[in-house]
Amino acid sequence: MDWGVMLSYLPLYRDALLLTLRIGWQGVALALALGVVCALTLHLRLPVLRQIVTAYIELFRNTPLLVQLFFLYFALPKVGVRLSPDACGTLGLGLLGGAYMAETFRSGLDNIPTIQSESAQSLGMTRLQAFRYVILPQAVSSSVPGLVANVVFLLKETSVFSTISLMDLMFTAKDLIGMYAKTLECLTLLVVFYLIMLLPVSFLGSAIERRLRYAEFGDRRTV
C-alpha cells in the first residue's frame, strides 16, 4: 500500500462522492414523488391510469438500470431527445426507483385493513379525513423500512453511472487504475468511499425502523 498516493487521490474521490450523492439524492427524490403518485393511482383504482402505471412498474422492475441508462443516453438522441449525462442519471434512477417505491407504498396502503377506514367513516370522518388521519400515518410507518431499503438499493445502483460518462466513484477508480495502475490503493479507496456514503443511510434506516416500531399499534416485539 502506498499511503502517499492514496492521500493524493483523496480530492478526486471526494468530488466523485459529491457527484454521486447529488445525482443519487435527486434520483431518490424523483423516485419518491413518482412512487407516491403511482401508488395512489393503484390504490384508488383510477381507470386507464392504473393500467399505464402497472405497465410502467413491470417494465422498470424487470430490466437492469444499465440497460435503461443506455436507452436514455444513447438511443433517445436518435429520435431527437437529447439529455445531459446528469439528467439521464437522475431520470434513470428516478424511473427505476419510482417503480420500486410505488410497490412499497402500495403494499403499505393495501395492508391497512378496510375496517380501519370503515370505522373512521362511521365516526363521521369524510373519506378524505379517514385517509389523511387514519390510513396514511399507518401506511407510511409500515412502509418506511422498505423505503429505506430502496434508498440504499438506489444509491448502490449509481455505480453504473460511469457508463454514461458521469465521473462518479466507479469512474474515478477505473480511470486512476487505467492511468497509474495503483490497483489496490484505488480499490481500497473505492470501498471506503462507498461505505462513507452507504453506512450512515443504512444505520439511519435501522434507527427509524426501531422508532416506528416503538410507536406501532400493539407491541409486535413480544410476538
Binding site: V152, K156, E157, T158, S159, V160, M170, A173, K174, I177, T183, L184, L187, L190, V191, Y194, L195, L198, L199, S202
Partner: peptide, 19 residues
C-alpha cells in the same frame, strides 16, 4: 449487502488478480 456488486466485481477481477 452494503457494497455495490460492481465494486465486488472490480475487487475480484482487478484487485485479487493483482494481490
Amino acid at each position: 449487502r452494503i457494497l455495490p456488486q460492481m465494486v465486488l466485481l472490480f475487487i475480484v477481477y482487478f484487485g485479487t488478480t493483482r494481490l
